[in-house]
């Protein structure tokens, strides 16, 4: 099943002054269960593309469809609700809420969805088990290592049962052991639960594990390789 469909996507910054094309005519489809890496040098437009697919940014032209919903035409308020229920985010700098414990960080997104307590508790336990942090439930982010914080971020991204996960350079701030560990968890979730992951990265470890690698240069897709 097709989860993401972009058509002739363009994003131009400073249109009136010195136009910079961050995304140039990108047409890209992502199917359910893909484990895709978007790669390219710095400034190639990876993060911008991810932001547009995630409904965090509007394209200058072109369309983005998530299943049957065209998000490129949605208002910012509608997009917030759409993101809450359909897209999971993992950020490079973990971005957990520092005053909440690991459990509360994961639970937070379900509170935004008004999920009942029983469901929240069960889901938090399930996800914290899945990322191997069931013993760190009551620790605050400052009491966790970078790798542990990023695993909590993965659990949080999954908590809302999104259609796919967007991860912007998730291993960039991690040591190699933590990065491998995180990739193992995400790959396992992908394989066992058919969760769709799309990464922007230039980490070779992530590229090696990805089954599909889309390469961007100057905002254009220059290669799109699916490994056998």
């Amino acid at each position: 099943m097709r989860v993401i469909e972009t058509h002739n996507l363009n994003k131009v910054y400073d249109e009136m002054v010195i136009p910079v094309k961050a995304v140039d005519n990108v047409t890209l489809n992502v199917e359910q269960g893909e484990f895709t890496a978007i790669v390219g040098p710095s400034g190639s437009g990876k993060t911008t593309l991810l932001n547009i697919i995630g409904g965090l940014d509007h394209p200058t032209s072109g369309t983005v469809k998530i299943e049957d919903s065209e998000i490129s035409a949605m208002s910012s308020n509608k997009l917030i609700d759409f993101r809450l229920n359909n897209i999971g985010f993992i950020f490079q700098a973990y971005n957990l809420i520092p005053v909440l414990t690991a459990r509360e960080n994961v639970e937070f997104i379900m509170l935004l969805q008004n999920k009942p307590r029983k469901e929240r508790d069960a889901r938090v336990k399930e996800l914290m088990d899945a990322v191997g942090l069931s013993d760190k439930m009551d620790n605050r982010p400052s009491e966790l290592s970078g790798g542990q914080q990023q695993r909590v971020a993965v659990a949080r991204a999954l908590a809302s049962k999104p259609k796919f996960i967007l991860a912007d350079e998730p291993t960039a701030n991690l040591d190699s052991h933590s990065a491998e560990n995180l990739l193992d968890i995400m790959l396992k979730l992908n394989q066992e639960e058919n969760i769709t992951f799309i990464f922007s990265t230039h980490d070779q470890r992530v590229i090696d594990r990805a089954r599909r690698v889309v390469t961007l240069t100057d905002g254009r897709v220059v290669s799109d390789v699916t490994k056998s």
Partner: peptide
């Protein structure tokens, strides 16, 4: 700023 941006990104609406 960054944290508030993250909250908006993950789906916390403007009213909240």
């Amino acid at each position: 700023t960054r944290e508030i941006g993250m909250l908006m990104a993950i789906g916390m609406n403007k009213t909240k």
